[in-house]
């Protein structure tokens, strides 16, 4: 899950209908699922549309950095696994757009917002995949961070989103294991391969920690999201869980983390880590990451180049319908 860009401050709007709202909150508090036809506060609907669509866009843009290496994968087994993984991400995009569409917004509208630069997607995908080891690192760290974020979303109050997440989480954890296995193979390989694995970890570690968004001190948005049981853990809680799970995995491989302050804190039982450069995160979100322009250009190009195909499909469907109507009338 890639919601860090959601952490913008937005006041909880005026209560539209106190009676409905109270009933709604009671249902949410009772862990009942909200379904598309149920009454819901407009702000709840908007929050979900934004979060689900950002998540969908992230899946789609995320196909690009990994897709980069499909033609260059080093063995047929790796090639098939990577292609299947990128295909899964496309499938995640599809389920998520479908989940968003249950909230009265069309996929076309959402895609337009992305292409117009009005919608956000996870800034992690604005980093380049420079070596084959990056494919391992993305699976291990990026899918790994995604899972930390997404597992609680399987219990999200909005039914269609929660159900989409259950399916997606299964595949993400497979991706994470697959990525780790690539890094493991490299770290047991030649000196050059080990260096490749270490280089990828060095480049992807901090951006992965940034996937959890600003620190809790800086983000106030969570109140509403927590109250409505869309979000269940704070950014910092999830980030800590990720660090605790991931550091031992890296150390096991004999890799080092690019953080001199990283150490196990006996007292708390957690891995303590250095300060995150949130300026970098802000810059990447603002469009200044190494690949923001390329990613958006690639998405726009695919969309523009494909316009005549989509038009043809529509025109053909239209012709068929009218032929069928004519045949029926005759």
């Amino acid at each position: 899950m890639y919601t860090q860009a959601l952490n913008t401050r937005e006041a909880i709007g005026p209560v539209e209908d106190p009676e409905h709202e109270a009933r709604f909150q009671a249902r949410v508090d009772g862990e009942e699922k909200v379904e598309p036809n149920d009454w819901m506060p407009e702000a709840y609907r908007r929050l979900l549309v934004r979060q689900i669509s950002q998540h969908a866009h992230s899946e789609i843009v995320g196909m690009l950095p990994e897709g980069n290496w499909i033609t260059r994968a080093p063995t047929l087994r790796r090639k098939a696994a990577l292609l299947a993984k990128v295909q899964d991400e496309g499938g995640h995009g599809l389920y998520l757009y479908a989940a968003a569409e249950t909230l009265d917004v069309s996929r076309e509208e959402l895609v337009e917002q992305l292409l117009a630069g009005k919608a956000k997607y996870s800034s992690i995908f604005n980093y380049p995949t420079l070596t084959w080891a990056d494919i391992g690192a993305v699976g291990w760290l990026v899918d790994g961070a995604a899972i930390m974020n997404q597992i609680p979303l399987c219990r999200c109050s909005y039914g269609p989103y929660a159900r989409a997440m259950i399916r997606i989480c299964k595949e993400e954890s497979f991706h994470q294991r697959q990525g780790y296995e690539i890094i493991l193979t490299l770290s047991r390989g030649t000196a050059e391969q080990k260096a490749m694995a270490q280089g990828a970890l060095n480049r992807w570690w901090w951006p992965s920690l940034m996937m959890f968004g600003p620190s809790d001190k800086e983000s106030q948005h969570s109140d509403k999201s927590m109250r409505w049981k869309v979000k269940r853990f704070s950014n910092d809680e999830l980030r800590q869980k990720f660090v605790d799970a991931t550091v031992p995995q890296g150390l096991y491989l004999g890799l080092t983390f690019p953080d001199p302050e990283l150490r196990f804190d006996e007292a708390s039982g957690h891995w303590a880590f250095g300060a995150i450069d949130f300026d970098e995160l802000r810059q990447v979100i603002a469009g200044n990451g190494p690949c923001n322009h390329e990613r958006m250009k690639a998405r726009r190009k695919a969309h523009d180049d494909g316009a005549w195909v989509r038009e043809a499909a529509l025109a053909y469907a239209e012709k068929r319908r009218s032929r069928r109507d004519t045949a029926r009338a005759a």
């Binding site: 690009l64 499909i70 494909g306």
Partner: peptide, 18 residues
């Protein structure tokens, strides 16, 4: 596989990858 991520629509990204 070169189409993956660049197809005219998401359904075709998936179908061509398939």
């Amino acid at each position: 596989s070169e189409w993956c991520g660049h197809a005219p629509m998401l359904e075709e990204d998936i179908a061509l990858a398939n």
